[in-house]
């Protein structure tokens, strides 16, 4: 249940592109054709699935306050969390190069379709953002971290797929000249983000009902007070 909730939350509610604007640079630059967008999207899912759990392990066993306790009690006082930016980005850059080498060696066909995108990914903010959000939201287990990596990647993939499809079609529309290209892409993304905001009700639905109940209770209390006041008036009259 916990996994399912995190999965849907990362894809729809906290969507990397629409809720936090991460990975916008490559999102805007590589979304002119659906086929290249799919290639980059798959590469992002792949790299996030590797780097988020890896950075979780680094964070939990090396960087956090007191994380070095497994080395011995005298190490428990160290807090290396100020190093997390540099550790995370180094992990990501190394993993991207490693993945590139491995994929080139074992699956040349996958390399041909993903290859050109892999170096781009090292500087994609969505990847580093995934690791930083994983740290700031205090994800509990390595399984959940893996889940979070994959599902944020899927969210990003969906977003770039959707915008690429829209941009392929919008070529035939009569857009005002100064808005063509970048301008209209921004505005469409804004509208899509408004649409994605409506997913916010998916998980908070229960809480809202509770809020309504308390409201009705209050209204009844006010009604009663008015009734009492009216009765008193009648008595006085």
């Amino acid at each position: 249940m916990e996994h399912l909730e995190l999965f849907f939350k990362a894809i729809f509610i906290d969507n990397m592109v629409f809720a936090t604007f991460l990975g916008m640079c490559s999102y805007l630059a590589v979304s002119k054709k659906v086929s290249t967008a799919v290639g980059l999207g798959v590469a992002v899912i792949f790299v996030m699935a590797i780097t988020v759990p890896l950075n979780w392990l680094l964070d939990t066993y090396i960087l956090k306050d007191g994380a070095l306790a497994w080395l011995g009690p005298e190490y428990a006082v160290y807090d290396l969390s100020f190093l997390s930016f540099i550790m995370f980005i180094a992990t990501i850059a190394t993993m991207v190069q490693l993945v590139e080498i491995i994929v080139e060696k074992f699956s040349p066909s996958l390399y041909n379709s993903l290859g050109i995108f892999l170096p781009l990914i090292a500087v994609n903010c969505a990847i580093l953002g995934g690791s930083l959000f994983m740290q700031s939201r205090e994800i509990q287990t390595v399984g959940l971290a893996l889940n979070y990596g994959i599902s944020s990647g899927i969210g990003w993939f969906l977003a770039i797929l959707a915008i690429a499809a829209i941009r392929e079609k919008i070529r035939y529309s009569n857009v005002p000249a100064p808005l063509r290209g970048l301008g209209i892409t921004f505005i469409i993304t804004g509208l899509m983000a408004i649409g994605f905001m409506s997913f916010g009700g998916m998980l908070t639905g229960g809480e809202e009902e509770v809020a309504k109940e308390t409201e009705t209770v209050q209204i009844e209390a006010v009604k009663e007070a008015i009734d009492i006041a009216n009765n008193e008036k009648e008595i006085h009259e």
């Binding site: 629409f18 921004f186 505005i187 804004g190 509208l191 983000a193 905001m197």
Partner: peptide, 10 residues
Amino acid sequence: LAPMALITVG
């Protein structure tokens, strides 16, 4: 809200 930033830049 977040989406209006995009539209403002647009």
